[in-house]
Amino acid sequence: MIRIEHLSKQYGRKFAVKDLNLHIEKGTTFGLIGSNGAGKSTTMKILATLIRPSSGRAWVGGYDVTKSGRKVREIVGYMPDFFGVYDQLTSIEYLDFYAACYGFDYATRRQVAMQLLELVDLTDQSNQPVDHLSRGMKQRLGLARALVHDPAFLILDEPASGLDPRSRMEFRKILKVLRSMGKTILISSHMLSELEEICDAIGVMEQGELIACEQVDALKHVRRSERIYEIYVRDKVEETVQLLQALQEVESVTVEERKLFVQTKMGEQSQDQLLSMLVEHQIPVLQFQERSINMEDLYLQVTNRSQGGNTDDQKVE
């Protein structure tokens, strides 16, 4: 379990993290999204015992990150957003070195390193110098390094940044395996779409504050039940808007010149009814199509609706 209470980190007058409250249950995969400077990395660094908070407290696995740093480091695997490698080492030596830092003997180290290389699909690169690996491979090796001591908690700071689509997919696959192993994962990203597949819950940070927190299932449910139709009309825009707004199932209508975006709770089967209704009222429809719902828009919409901006002590189970 990860618990954060009124956590703040201040640099001069600027807050990198401001009064953060969060509770992540054991075995949960929690995603943090936010733009650069939102406070994601600072929060993660505090949890990884790399920096000290200015105020507030945080516990990982029951250990206070400021008082029991060593204990926390023993149970946490941390992967920073940017990290270097020792270019003079091969992949297996790289993992061997970090395993030695955790006090493993030589035989165990080699065994662990081989198992991890297999997990991240780098077995064939075991004797390659780390410097010769591609970015995607280095990221996977970095993940293997974070797993070298089989930690119960994983803190991954934008692990897929800078990766090509294929490498991202491979990375997600590994994360799913780790998730199935029951590890508690805190992962950050700029993009929500990147996290929705692997996370149980997601929080949004902005200017050091957690502005929203929601279960991914709730978002998926909304996506299943809500639809957006894109209707392009030759004229009669105002009349069309009035007609659509009169319908009970229509939640909102947005107009962009002669294009209308209709958000509705109608099922797929009612698409034709909506179109027929418009034709019956002699609306000159030029184009009618369903638009996929943007996860980011939906997320902010759902969180605003359910929380009204109150984010005190977000609990995720």
Binding site: T49, L50, R73, F83, G84, V85, Y86, C101
Partner: peptide, 14 residues
């Protein structure tokens, strides 16, 4: 400079 220090500091090594 090589961005390897934080990786060392998160190990139990003091």
């Amino acid at each position: 400079e090589k961005q390897t220090l934080s990786l060392l500091l998160v190990t139990p090594l003091s």
